[in-house]
Design a binder for these strands. Structure first.
Length: 234
DNA sequence: GCGACAG
DNA sequence: ATCTTGTCGC
């Protein structure tokens, strides 16, 4: 438990901690009725010297027309603590993400993160690590693959193939938009892959990334949020 | 030893 | 991740 509070570690120590923390991940669904979904992403300012974490909370409503509406946003900036090292991304981004979460007044039941969940060499991508810390269900949605192999995926929206590693299914490569480069979806904490895929597809709008992550991405990079606040689904 | 390598 | 304009397509 105390280990979870450690962030300033050498790469070797971080790798050892990841293997240990991964044992605590829950791969079956343990999620409350979803009313709010948060999207998280990290950006940088000052040529990388400042890490900027952004979180956007959306209200999920299943009416005649399912909808997602932005209800809160938070940004947290802090000095960048370490360089990007493949496989150790969470040690660079999670601390800042926690700073942004601390500013929220609404507690989401589900969190979508830009990056991998368990589709990681030691099964602890940034979404998984953040899920353990927040003790909330998390899903990783990455724009590219870090680990695992997979056959080619179909070109239609919704097509997907399993991402595997050492005989385990660690995620899915999903074509979230027709003919556009697929995203890598992997559960983080407290969710199965099936449930993760279901939620990602439910949150898809017109962009390749699900709305929570898409909006957080824009907020993190200061490109702002364009257009309306109500995003109709269906 | 030689690649691969989230953001 | 970030540096950056226009442009092709639904």
């Amino acid at each position: 438990m105390e280990a979870l509070h450690e962030w300033n570690l050498t790469p070797k120590q971080a790798v050892a901690l990841q293997a240990d923390l991964a044992k605590r991940l829950e791969s079956t669904d343990r999620i409350d009725p979803v009313e709010h979904i948060a999207g998280v992403d990290i950006g940088f300012e000052e040529e990388g010297a400042i890490t900027r974490a952004a979180v956007v909370v959306l209200k999920w409503e299943l009416a005649a027309v399912p909808s997602l509406t932005v209800v809160e946003q938070a940004v947290h900036r802090e000095p960048t603590r370490m360089p990007y090292i493949p496989g150790l991304l969470s040690f660079r981004e999670v601390p800042a993400a926690l700073g942004a979460f601390a500013k929220l007044s609404v507690k989401p039941e589900l969190v979508m993160v830009d990056g991998q969940g368990i589709a990681h060499p030691r099964r602890l991508g940034v979404a998984a690590h953040l899920g353990l810390w927040l003790d909330l269900p998390t899903i990783g949605i990455a724009k590219s693959r870090l680990y695992g192999k997979h056959p080619e995926v179909g070109e239609a929206r919704g097509d997907w193939v399993p991402l595997t590693a050492g005989g385990d299914v660690i995620g899915a490569v999903l074509r979230s938009r027709a003919k556009v480069k697929p995203v890598v979806v992997s559960p983080g904490h407290r969710l199965s892959l099936d449930t993760s895929l279901t939620w990602v597809m439910r949150c898809l709008g017109r962009t390749k990334l699900p709305e929570p992550t898409h909006l957080a991405d824009r907020l993190a990079s200061r490109r702002g949020t364009q257009g309306q606040q109500r995003l109709y689904k269906g």
